[in-house]
Design a protein around this nucleic acid. Structure first.
Lengths: 180, 180
DNA sequence: TGTTTTATTAACACTATGTCAATAAAATAG
DNA sequence: CTATTTTATTGACATAGTGTTAATAAAACA
């Protein structure tokens, strides 16, 4: 507890209110370009100037929303990752189920530049962990982990973009098929 | 020449000026969210109101820029597609070379919602044409053409996003490797 | 409970948006 | 080559959004 400056409860409440507001607005109207600080503040029932006390701009707010979601996703993945006798496909389904559950907001956030980067990093990490647990040395494989992560990301983006008409199980099986 | 309403040369010039202006601005500062109609009109040396005569808004302008690029890409691909004895990899390299050549503006346009959709359609079409020329019946293959197109798209996006540090040949070989 | 800390606010100057009636200029028919 | 039509261009206007600041209010905690 050295440099961990304790947050005033008021700050925490306000930040959360803005985050919840922007998510609500985006689910109702999934057009990021139509967002304004004014609309977000009104929905959060807070003054517009308060927004600038917590966030640099709308992009900064969205970046923080993205990071929150990934923290949540990773905390929900970690118990699954520790089960050794769980195979590729089962882990992948756990992963995809998270996306399915939050598909509405995730489909919108995909448009945000920060999302892809974070998603790519997360996927790559998960693949490397997975490979290690299988005893595969990733440095020797023909396909780079970046290429693998990018191609899976592409499939998940298409899945979410098109309204999630396929089950997590089907998408998992298609991804597995790709790397047979 | 029935419903093909002939364009006034003035319209054509103005539209082109706005398109060139927005591309110039985006190459200098690749942040779509910082674009304004005002800046674009100033760069095009035209009045701001003229902008609204040709485009609905900035998104509409960007959509048209995206479509122009894909028209150009397809017109450059079609001679290549007609050469029967050209293999997968050589066609893929022709495709990727186009992206390499226009990487600066394409890396920016990837952020635009319309881009991914158009790109996915184009890729899927090219894959189906390719398969047909090889005599493969796409309806019988295990992987859907959508999944294939999405995964390749993911790789190309990663390639462009990370400053194109790999050659078209390397990326092509990695994509081919994926579907071995 | 009093004092400090910090979040909140209204107000300000500025920039951006989208539209319209008036104007200018290019296109084309005679 | 000129007259007339067509349509692109413009300045001006009302409205909405931005980012900041000094004054205020209200939680935190000693």
């Amino acid at each position: 507890m050295t440099t961990q400056k304790k947050q005033d409860p008021r700050s925490i409440r306000s930040k959360r209110a803005f985050k919840e507001a922007v998510v609500e607005i985006l689910i109702e109207n999934p057009d990021i370009s139509k967002l304004t600080v004014q609309k977000i503040a009104k929905r959060a029932e807070l003054n517009r100037a308060t927004f600038y006390l917590h966030f640099l701009d709308i992009n900064d707010l969205l970046k923080q929303v993205v990071y929150d979601i990934f923290d949540d996703l990773l905390s929900k993945m970690s118990p699954t990752l520790q089960i050794d006798n769980l195979n590729n496909q089962e882990q992948l389904i756990t992963f995809l189920d998270y996306f399915y559950k939050h598909r509405k907001i995730l489909a919108v956030l995909f448009e945000h530049p920060g999302f892809n980067k974070k998603m790519h990093m997360t996927l790559k990490d998960l693949i490397v962990i997975q490979r290690k647990s299988e005893g595969v040395d990733s440095t020797n494989t023909t396909l780079s982990m970046d290429i693998l992560a990018s191609s899976i990301l592409g499939i998940i983006m298409w899945w979410l973009r098109n309204g999630v008409h396929f089950s997590s199980e089907y998408i998992a099986s298609q991804i597995i098929e790709l790397y047979r």
